[in-house]
Write a protein that binds this DNA or RNA. Structure first.
Length: 572
RNA sequence: CGGGGCGUAGCGCAGCCUGGUAGCGCAUCUGCUUUGGGAGCAGAGGGUCGGAGGUUCAAAUCCUCUCGCCCCGACCA
């Protein structure tokens, strides 16, 4: 491709809207432009990267025996009502109506559509297993789209759905996908981990997330320093800190005056007691039919994990109660809630059970209670694992190992769904005995553009992107530095032709621009290699091959340049 | 959804408080010079100041409404 005929509008300045590296660099390199909040246009360079990621995905999916389909992005409401998700999915589901006032949605995922297809077309155990996938545009009306393609509302996703005759076969399909995903992300040049995950709104029995390790990641994962255990913090089942019954003597509970001290930090300092002796009491609103309020308890130096709390309460979602609800539930302003004498249900973290002579709010302004003992003072509390892990917690798998925390970008997620959708939508088959059974499903997603963005998060420097060869928009930049020097131009042209003939994807920067501009843009766009063709080098019969990743420049004779470039590229 | 902020030339911003000629840097175009890490000089083009309404002799500036965008929070008790 000739740069002069191409559209790669690079930016010298960083657009104000961008927060993280991949977003800034994609904008600066002229890969994407924003159309609306969370909605982006892909420019030619962006398209090429996405196509490469897609090609890798297709190859590995096909290799794993999956079949490509292409399902509608607009879906009739009826199917969603049938699965029960029309009401469950909430505001993230973009609902639209046609001219006849019929309800549709823009698909945020395709379980309903695929299950509908399969229930119509597949009847026999002989038809199974089958794994169907597509690469489709989805729309999820995120509360807060951000970070460019990382959390866009409209985005491209590879989604696959497997249908099996029984649980064991479904497990095999799942394992096959897990293997394929490992290959896909490895080929994309990413450093990642497959971690155990919560199943969330998709539902199902268990799942793994593929997390690209990066500081900018929106997810927190915990992993063991001794074994191979790793999980999303929402999923980590913690070994209870101490489940032994309390031993020591109970002191009488006593109300103390704590004027203006609402936070644990303040009260801890004021009473001169460590945070770990506090029982933190948070009031949550659940999304069940009564919007019931509950109190969630954990040790003062721990945090409640919303997902775990929701699971323990068997509700879809919990949100922190607002000020009015807190006052209604506790009779006190925010900051003075305590488990003693609360009229609402109490769900406590396992770590609270063995606490002795602890400190809590008094459910009245400017007062706390000391020497609170759970078994004595709020015997009705239920206990579950509802807190966030912290570094140093024991590994739930191997015991002696300690958990460490890291940030990750979720680029893929695989679920073993079971029969949730095959039951609600009636996807059945006849087994060998002629008995009608529900298919056992799995579903498997990959965020295509997010994968590309994650690659940038892991591969960049101050100058710009450093593409892994496998997903780079082109292999090599050819930089004729002196565009009015006949020898420089003709050499660059010849290299360009020869490189294309040898199978490389080359971008010839034939613009009438100064050398500095070409260098800067080449580094910014981040192709793995650059060939620098300048007067100085040609005087000695050489051009330079620069390796973007290392910055290394190698002088090579002009007639060896193509073969050397091919070799270096294949070694990267 | 709560809080904060921002919409002025393609991009980054100043001007607004205290109403009176719409500005700066980069980019773009022309010319000359320059040519191995985002050139220099000279000149030029480009703006319904997000939109609507209002106040005023006069509105980018003040008021009201509205649209869009960004950030923080939603794990603080």
């Amino acid at each position: 491709m000739r740069y002069s005929k191409y559209l790669a509008p690079t930016l010298k300045e960083v657009p104000a809207e961008a927060e993280i590296v991949s977003h800034k660099l994609m904008l600066r390199a002229g890969m994407i432009r924003k159309l609306a909040a969370g909605v982006y246009s892909l420019l030619p360079l962006g398209v090429r990267v996405i196509r490469k990621v897609e090609a890798i995905i297709r190859e590995e999916m096909n290799k794993a025996g999956a079949l490509e389909v292409f399902l509608p992005s607009i879906q009739p409401a009826g199917l969603w009502k049938e699965s029960g998700r029309w009401n469950m999915y909430g505001k993230e589901l973009l609902r639209i109506t046609d001219r006849h006032d019929r309800e549709f949605c823009y698909g945020p995922t395709h379980e309903e559509v695929i299950t509908d297809l399969v229930r119509r077309e597949l009847r026999s155990y002989r038809d199974l297993p089958v794994n169907l996938y597509q690469i489709q545009t989805k729309f999820r009306d995120e509360i807060r789209p951000r970070f460019g393609l990382m959390r866009a509302r409209e985005f491209s996703m590879k989604d696959a759905y497997s249908f099996d005759v029984n649980d064991e076969a479904a497990g095999e399909s799942y394992a096959l996908m897990k293997k394929a995903y490992n290959s896909i992300f490895k080929r994309c040049g990413l450093r990642f981990r497959a971690v155990e995950a919560d199943t969330g709104q998709i539902g199902g029995s268990f799942s793994h997330e593929f997390m690209v390790l990066a500081e900018s990641g929106e997810d927190l994962i915990a992993y063991c320093d001794q074994c191979d255990y790793s999980a999303n913090v929402e999923k980590v089942s913690l070994v209870a800190d101490n489940t032994d019954p309390p031993t020591g003597s109970y002191k009488p509970a006593e109300k103390v005056h704590t004027p203006g001290k609402g936070s644990i930090d303040d009260v801890s300092e004021f009473l001169n007691r460590p945070r770990s002796t506090f029982i933190k009491t948070l009031i949550y609103k659940t999304d069940n039919e009564n919007k019931e309020l509950v109190a969630a308890l954990c040790r003062g130096d721990h945090e409640i994990n919303h997902t775990k709390l929701a699971r323990a309460l068997d509700v879809n979602e919990v949100v922190l109660a607002d000020e009015d609800d807190v006052i209604r539930a506790t009779g006190a302003p925010v900051g003075y809630a305590g488990a003693m004498g609360l009229a609402i249900p109490v769900m406590a973290d396992n770590g609270v059970r063995s606490m002795q002579n602890a400190v809590t709010g008094a459910n009245e302004a400017d007062a706390h209670i000391i020497n609170v003992n759970p078994g004595r003072d709020f015997p009705d509390a239920r206990y579950a694992d509802i807190r966030q892990p912290v570094e140093g917690d024991l590994c739930p798998k191997c015991g002696p190992g300690k958990l460490l925390l890291a940030r990750g970008i979720e680029v893929g997620h695989i679920f073993k769904l079971g029969s949730k959708y095959s039951e609600s939508l009636g996807a059945t088959f006849l087994d060998k005995q002629g008995a009608e059974k529900h298919m056992i499903m799995g579903c498997y997603g990959i965020g295509v553009a997010r994968t590309a963005a994650a690659a940038i998060e892991q591969n960049h420097d101050e100058q710009g992107i450093i593409w892994p060869v496998s997903i780079a928009p082109f292999d090599i930049s050819i930089l004729p530095l002196n565009i009015d020097d006949q020898q420089v131009v003709s050499t660059a042209e010849k290299l360009y032709d020869d490189m294309i003939k040898s199978g490389m994807e080359a971008l010839l920067d034939d613009r009438e621009a100064r050398p500095g501009v070409k260098f800067k843009d080449a580094d910014l766009i981040g192709l793995p290699l650059q060939v620098i063709v300048g007067k100085k080098g040609l005087a000695n019969g050489v051009v330079e091959i620069k390796i973007r990743k290392t910055g290394e420049k190698i002088s090579v004779p002009v007639d060896e340049a193509v073969s050397r470039a091919v070799t270096i590229l294949s070694d990267l």
